[in-house]
Amino acid sequence: MDFTLFDAEEQAIRQARLLAEKLASAAPECSAEFEALVDSFKRSYREQRRLVRVSDRLQAQVGAANQELERRRQEAETALERLREAQEMIVQAEKLASLGALVAGVAHEINTPVGIAVSCASHLSDATAELKGKVEAGALGRADFNRYLATAADTTALILSNAGRAAELINSFKQIAVDRASAERRRFPLRSTIQETLTSLQPKLRPGHHTVEVTCPADLEVDGYPGAVSQILTNLVINSLTHAFAEGQAGTMSIAASRPDPDTVQLVYRDDGRGIPPDHLTQIFEPFFTTRRGQGGSGLGLHIVHNLVAGPLKGTITVESLAGSGTTFTVTFPRRAPDA
């Protein structure tokens, strides 16, 4: 293909050469000056060609650099996205793990009344077999029969009360477990959700003789996510139990629910532990922030609290703490959760 970018310039130079020949015979005294002019045009033309080449090359380099930059930016963004996904997965896993802990707590609580009922039933069964043997042998005395009656009365009363207690526990846990697992929205009385949550925490509270005081109006009904509320309280209590109290110290925690205005609920959670150092206070809600790494601390407990408050509850959480005088978390959220 016959194409040159500088066709016009080449042509001008050819014409100049022809003109130079004419000039050599017509006006020889002008030849030298004319040649000088043509030379300067040629230099200028070569310069122009060089500049175009240099400029194109620079453009190509800038273009390549920009492409590389864009590629790296995308790589970084992909990496960040993966990291976020991984973080989200870990948070989900932690939520599941806490559901597992809840189930373990439930099992532990129910174990006691069921155990008592089983041993009472077993005792009654033994006594009945003994009675039956005596009847068959025709050796039943009045005293034997009275003793059996007393045993039957005692054991059945214990079986009844303990089986009733187990049924009661199962009922309250059932609701809590369903709420946690399903994240479903419903109207619920706040006080019973708080109390059921605390019952599920008894296995953790009892050994250290910790107590939790609850203040909540009986008629305070919330339209929202009971599972989230329960999880928030559980994580706050466990956070206190993990960090706030010295070995052997029986802690006192309190949960005070109120309605600062008809559409708003405020939960104030307080412990009387050692408090959170000021330089940690700004970080406690960050994922993976923990002072117990390697000792079972995941650094996710309060992050999940924060997520649940900001997410399903559409509320806010603040923390106040003074070294030595405990920590207060204040959760404020609409009484009727806004539609998602």
């Binding site: 970018l5 500088f6 500049l51 175009v52 080449r53 400029s55 194109d56 453009q59 190509a60």
Partner: peptide
């Protein structure tokens, strides 16, 4: 456009 395109 680059320089040679400008020339074209």
């Amino acid at each position: 456009f680059n320089s040679s395109s400008a020339k074209a």
